[in-house]
Every structure is written in structure tokens, then in C-alpha cells.
Design a protein around this nucleic acid. Sequence first.
DNA 1: TACCAGGTAAAAA
DNA 2: TTTTTACATGGT
Length: 274
Amino acid sequence: MPLLQLPEPYDFELSTARYRAFGPDRANLWHEGALHRVVDGRDVRIAAAPGGVEVEPLDGDIEPVVRTLLGTDFDLAPFYEFARGDSILGDLVERFAGLRPPLNPDPFETLVTSITAQQVSLHAAVSIRNRLIERYGEPGAVAYAFPTRAALAEAREDELAALGFSRRKAEYVVGLAASALDLHALADLPDDEVKDTLVGVRGLGEWTADWFLARHLARPRAWPAGDLAVRKAVSRFYGDGPMLSIQDVRALGERFDPFQNLAAHYLLAGSMAP
DNA sequence: TACCAGGTAAAAA
DNA sequence: TTTTTACATGGT
């Protein structure tokens, strides 16, 4: 069985918890102890193994996608060193040692996923997204390939609405898919230009742009201050009672510079636990 | 049954 | 310019 070595520390259970937390995700499916995702039409199975992960099948096209999916881009050592200077964050990095935020390998999928999650609970978002995947995606052996941009560019808004999208969100998804914007080119731009570009697209606001920077581009300073769960987490760990405003949370993120992205994920992890 | 949930654009003030 | 409202589903 092909083994992919991962940097230490790496905690597979912790890092993949997101794929199980809000119900099964058809495109990143947890099945019999392994994570499945379709890469270039092939169903790839990823499971924990001593010294890394078993990946089947594995080749030069699949490896970078799996590495992205497992968040190996993140360099934890300097962040952990930084966290020791903050008693709250220091405690969290000990409790969640080896947690690496999983990244979404595809920019279009990242944005459509964010649109589905706008405003509604993540349980509701996953449910609606799964119906989208089953309707417009391609089934693999276990998981589904997420719908292509071309497939959604030609989708009827009525049909998306029938899947549970609001009329507005159906317009956002089809409009984004049919737009001329080169989503892969965003990877070459600095954070603020990525945000400016995305926020200029109808249906994509600052929250969506911040999570795109954090969970697709793995930008170290990405800080989704407007995210309700981030606000709750920051308020719990650094506030004194009432929930902090978006502006307060945005300002407070400066204390984690240049590790805002990892800090956000560890705070969220700590917030999920009792 | 209500109400809230990892927002956004457009209308109204 | 700032504040309010409509939106749609799933869980509690």
C-alpha cells in the first residue's frame, strides 16, 4: 500500500475531524475509517498509517492534492514557538498538537462551498451541498467529484432552488461559474488584492474572501473576523462576557500576527471542545 | 413552535 | 452614510 510521509507532528484524526463534524460530505467522504476524494476521476482513499498516511491510488498528480487536502503546507513549529508566548494559545496548541487545517484544493469548489454556508448552520449547508454534488457532480467509487464550473455555469437557477438554495444564492453560484474571472490566477496575488477581487463578485463578501485566503490559499495572516464561530471563540477565550464585535475581533487578530490563520483554527478547535 | 445558524445584497432610513 | 430586511434549510 503506497505510503505518503507527512511532516511531524501530524494528527490525522484531529485534522480530518472537520469532514465528520457536520454530517457526511459527499466530495470529501469519511468512509470506513478513511477519507475519500475523487482526483482526476479516480477515487482516492486516504487512511492513517504509521509514519504518514496510506494513499491508494498514489501518483504524481494525486500527491500534491492529498498534501493540500491534509494541510501539510502549514509549518507548525514556528507557530507553536510563537504560541508559547500566549497562555491561552499555548494551552490550545498543547491540547491540539498535530492539528493541521485541511485545505480545499479547488478554488471554485471553495467559493461555492462558502456560498452554501452563508448564513445557515453548517449542518444545513452540508445537506444542501450534498444535494448539489449528487445532482451536478460525478460519482466515483466512494466519493463524488464536486460539480465542475462548466456544469454549474449551465445549471438552471430553478433547479438549484429546488435543491434548497435561496433564489439569491442560486444566482450567486451560476453567476460565479459563468463569470470570466480566472480563479487559479488569484494564487499569485497578495492577500488584499485577492480580497478586493473576490468581494467585487456578486455573492462573495468579506467573510467568503477571508475563508478563501485561509482554507484554499493557506495564507498565514488570513483572519475571518466576521465568522460567527470565530467571533464566539475569540470572545470566549479573550473577551469578558458579551460577544465581541467584528471590528473588535478584527483588531484582536493583530496579536496573532503573522499566524492568524493557524490561530483561528486552533481557537475554533478549542471552542468546539467542552 | 419558534428561533438560531461559521452572510450578502438591496431597500429604507 | 448607516441600519434594516429577505432569504431558505436543518437542528434544538
